[in-house]
Amino acid sequence: MMFEFTQKTALVTGAASGIGKAIALELAASGATVVVSDLDEAACGRVAEEIARAGGRALARAADVSDAAAMEAAVAFAEAETGGLHLAVNNAGIGGAQAPVGEYPLESWAQVIGVNLNGVFYGMRYQIPAMERAGGGAIVNMASILGSVGFANSSAYVASKHALLGLTKTAAMEYAQKGVRINAVGPAFIQTPLLTDNLSDEMLAGLAGLHPIGRIGTPEEVSALTCFLLSERASFITGSYHLVDGGYTAP
């Protein structure tokens, strides 16, 4: 066991697949009780069952992160079912349309901001008070390399991730002396359904070539850093942004 999360409850959004699922599995393997949250209730249940088969403890909770009431209810569920909330990963996100700013669909802009930015705010809005009630905790918000650089035809996604970093830093400053640490992780292109289900092999190879390391990353590589930041090994780290990018932003 690399990390120790025994007697801790963790809420992970976007946990039905990809990075969120990898994080949920690692947290559970490290002793945490994990509330597996995603839009798809059946998919949440499958991940929770996988954790249970491996000897861990997990609860499934469907929730739309862009709905403040749903996030409030998810946090209340975690507290009611497990006695408290100590860890959270605000991972749910969508890519949105691909178009120049002057042609970007208004509906897609609203959807991306609603999930990627508002969803993180709504999560922290209710997670932080719950963690204060539990005596402290840690939050990781899933940003992206596109929280620090631009990417043509992805204005909504890039804007949401840049804003997420500002939100993370502000919240970290506000709660640093109240026992709640808050950080952001910035993955490069990762082998997730959001990416691989929508791109051809040729396009994926092209993306791999953008990384000096010569490949796309894995969800487990993102999970390793995320779980470190949630752990007591990172007790002096808050308000910062950590890349998992295979050198993408190095040039």
Rank of each mutant, 00 (worst) to 15 (best):
G93H: 09
G93N: 05
G150P: 02
F228Q: 03
A143I: 02
K8N: 11
T249P: 02
A130P: 03
K8L: 11
E26F: 08
A76N: 02
L25Q: 12
L225M: 10
G209M: 02
M2V: 04
I94N: 06
I113W: 07
A73T: 01
V158Q: 09
N141L: 08
I139G: 10
E72Q: 11
A184V: 01
A205D: 14
G95T: 00
T238R: 15
T238D: 14
E132S: 04
S148R: 10
L167M: 14
L167F: 15
D201Y: 14
D245R: 12
L27T: 06
S148F: 14
A130M: 08
Y104E: 01
I128G: 08
F189S: 14
V140T: 01
S108I: 00
L167D: 12
G137A: 14
A99Q: 02
S200K: 11
R133P: 00
A43Y: 15
G96T: 01
D245I: 01
V12Q: 07
D201H: 14
R61M: 04
T196V: 07
Y248V: 00
M173V: 00
L165P: 01
I145D: 06
L11G: 12
E79R: 09
G31P: 01
E50W: 09
D197P: 03
D201Q: 13
G114I: 01
D64G: 04
G136P: 00
G31L: 05
V149I: 01
S144M: 04
A80S: 10
A15E: 08
A70K: 05
T226E: 08
A63K: 09
A184L: 03
V36R: 12
V244H: 12
L164V: 08
A24Y: 08
P212F: 11
Q98N: 11
N153P: 01
L207H: 15
S223Q: 03
A176K: 10
T9Q: 12
H211D: 10
Y104I: 00
A63M: 02
I145N: 07
A88I: 00
G147H: 06
A48T: 03
G114E: 03
E232I: 01
A92N: 05
D67G: 05
S200E: 08
L243K: 09
A110R: 11
A188N: 10
E220H: 11
S154A: 10
L27G: 09
L27V: 05
A134T: 04
G45K: 11
M142Q: 09
V222K: 05
I19T: 11
T226Q: 07
G96E: 04
A184W: 12
G119Q: 07
A62K: 10
